[in-house]
Simulated assay, not measured.
Amino acid sequence: MAKSVHRAVGVDIGGTGMKAGIVDLEKGALLSDRVRIPTPEGAKPKDVLATVRELLDLLGPDADSLPLGVCFPTIVKNGRTLSAANVSKKWLNFEAEKFFEDGLGRDIHFVNDADAAGLAELRYGAAKDRPGLTILTTLGTGIGSAFLFEGALVPNTELGHLQWDGHSIERYAAATARERDGLSWEQWAHRLQKFYDHVEFLFSPDLILVGGGVSKNPEKFMPLLKTRAEMIPAVHRNNAGIIGAASLALA
């Protein structure tokens, strides 16, 4: 760990909410209150940038001098966003990292949101020192995923876009599908089971972690799921994106 870097800011941009906090990089824990603002309707680049500025203002002047990591719900390669499932199509093949750096007037670290959550679990959480393949799934607006193999992140996996009945399976099984379709926890777990069955068939993970907004209520659905691999809630739950994005300052 870089001894000169002990704190950083993490910003987690989601399909429905944007969150930020100041993170202790030695402990992998929030030092500040978590601040949250709803994601602007349509999630267009200029509106998302303006909301990031608002979040940083809410954290106070201390945040201005700290390293900044931003995570975002798209495929991210070389600073470009290459998908746009739950945000504006304007993000397709968009130089997002440069856009944020120019708009904020500072360097940033930029990464996919589920990959950021995976890094939080790898460095400070349930995947730390675990052998074999750990798959983190984040259940929220969509379904994000992070592959963690023998202590390393394999970036840009998109298990939420496995095909189910002609559509991405996240449309059928994400947490928002439960709300949209008025499902009971049992009915939703039945859909999730199909997702996890397919994931296990394809990848045979050694550990499955469940994160995202709904992971704050694991008792409502996780006991209803059956997997060959051990399945447990992610340690950092809905703060994992913030913590993982901030931890990029250590890279």
Rank of each mutant, 00 (worst) to 15 (best):
G132R: 01
R171F: 11
R130E: 07
D197R: 14
D24L: 00
M231F: 04
K89R: 15
K77P: 00
R191A: 10
I37Q: 06
D33M: 07
G166V: 09
P40W: 08
S247N: 06
L119M: 06
T74G: 12
A117L: 03
V235S: 08
A20W: 07
G241F: 05
A85N: 08
A240D: 02
L56E: 06
A234N: 03
R237C: 04
G142I: 12
I143W: 14
V52R: 07
E54K: 11
R171M: 12
G14L: 11
E101T: 05
A246T: 03
T227C: 09
L68T: 00
T51M: 08
L30M: 08
L92W: 13
S88H: 10
T39P: 13
K3P: 09
G103Y: 01
E101A: 08
A189G: 14
N238Y: 10
L59P: 05
L202H: 15
W164N: 12
S83E: 08
A20L: 06
V154C: 08
P155D: 07
A50F: 00
P61M: 02
K216T: 07
E219R: 11
E230D: 14
E230T: 06
E219P: 01
P155C: 02
A127R: 06
N239S: 11
L122V: 14
G17T: 14
L209K: 01
N156F: 12
T134P: 10
A246W: 12
T138D: 09
T51R: 03
V5P: 14
P223F: 10
C71K: 07
G244T: 05
T157E: 06
K216W: 01
G14I: 09
A20I: 04
I243V: 07
